[in-house]
């Protein structure tokens, strides 16, 4: 690059216009990188809508999967996803928020605390399929829960826990110290302060994080395949110990079938999945903008 600062005879010369032209080229290049990412996203969404929209009929939501594409639907997948999400949230929310409260409000600065924090950071980077192996060994075989929706939800709860804890901590940290001091000065105990003052203010942020964690769980496929969730279910899901399938697994199943109609069904399933995820994300943004208090 030093050639940019010299004439042909090797003497120093600023050559500013050349260097500025270089810079503009680079700016365009970096803008192109952002644009390329957005183009791929648009092509992906467009491709899926064009392939799948004509299969979005009412029966698509009420029918079980079938050998015949025209009779196939998402009934068992929707039930499974709904059960899985509810159970996951039920387990992960108290543990995640509790851990976030402990780490922000109670934890002393010692080795144990640092060890917990390193653990959480690393767990966030563990491939999701490893959680599937954990669930298979621990919940399916160890606790003998079988390939049930409960075993799947427990696996998923562990998987989303780091997301919940990190976002929960951010929300709690954003509550100003003065709120705590005022409460403590009036004689409230530490837990009363947290329960009555810190948590209500932090709740919009915590809920936003919970929604993000839930959308992660809705889209996850690999860990549930590993614990043995089925790909083809033709009965209603009645309890937490029943066999189950979920939306992304049903999509995966249709993608792997050779018939072109099933690929289109997969696209239709993806439209439903992305529709749910984008709505949840929109809800998270609204929550953040409308309810969050700016100090």
């Amino acid at each position: 690059m030093n050639g940019l600062f010299a004439n042909e005879d090797g003497r120093f010369a600023p050559r500013l216009s050349l260097r500025l032209r270089f810079g503009r080229l680079f700016q365009l290049l970096s803008l192109a990188a952002v644009t390329l990412g957005l183009i791929v996203l648009s092509v992906l969404i467009l491709d899926i809508i064009l392939n799948g929209y004509k299969w979005l009929r009412p029966e698509f939501f009420t029918e079980f999967p079938s050998r015949f594409p025209e009779k196939s639907g998402l009934r068992s997948a929707l039930q499974g996803s709904l059960w899985m999400i509810s159970l996951t949230a039920l387990m992960a929310f108290p543990i995640g928020v509790g851990a976030a409260i402990y780490l922000e409000e109670y934890a002393p600065d010692n080795g144990l605390t640092r060890f917990i924090e390193i653990n959480i950071a690393n767990l966030a980077g563990v491939p999701s399929i490893i959680y599937g192996l954990l669930g298979l060994g621990l919940f399916v075989r160890g606790l003998e829960l079988g390939r049930s929706v409960l075993a799947g939800s427990m696996t998923m709860a562990l998987l989303v826990l780091p997301i919940l804890i990190v976002s929960g901590r951010e929300a709690i940290r954003a509550v100003p110290q003065s709120v705590r001091q005022a409460s403590l000065a009036l004689g409230a105990t530490q837990w009363q302060t947290i329960q009555n003052h810190v948590l209500p203010y932090a709740m919009p942020g915590i809920l936003t994080g919970t929604i993000l964690a839930i959308s992660r769980a809705i889209g996850e496929t690999a860990p549930l395949i590993t614990i043995g969730a089925l790909t083809y279910i033709r009965f209603d899901l009645k309890g937490p110990l029943d066999l189950f399938t979920v939306l992304p697994i049903q999509i995966f199943n249709w993608v792997s079938l050779p018939k072109a109609e099933f690929q289109q069904l997969a696209a239709a399933g993806i439209i439903v999945l992305l529709g749910v995820l984008f709505s949840l994300n929109a809800l998270a943004i609204v929550l953040r903008n409308k309810l969050q208090i700016r100090w």
């Binding site: 851990a99 653990n119 767990l123 192996l133 837990w191």
Partner: peptide
């Protein structure tokens, strides 16, 4: 009550340690 709550919350944070240990134990076995 305060001590009990603190202990329960510490247990919740420790779930992350148990998860790591669980992964290693299951895989290793």
């Amino acid at each position: 009550r305060e001590k009990l709550i603190r202990a329960v919350l510490l247990l919740f944070s420790a779930v992350s340690i148990f998860t790591t240990l669980g992964i290693i134990a299951v895989l290793l076995r």
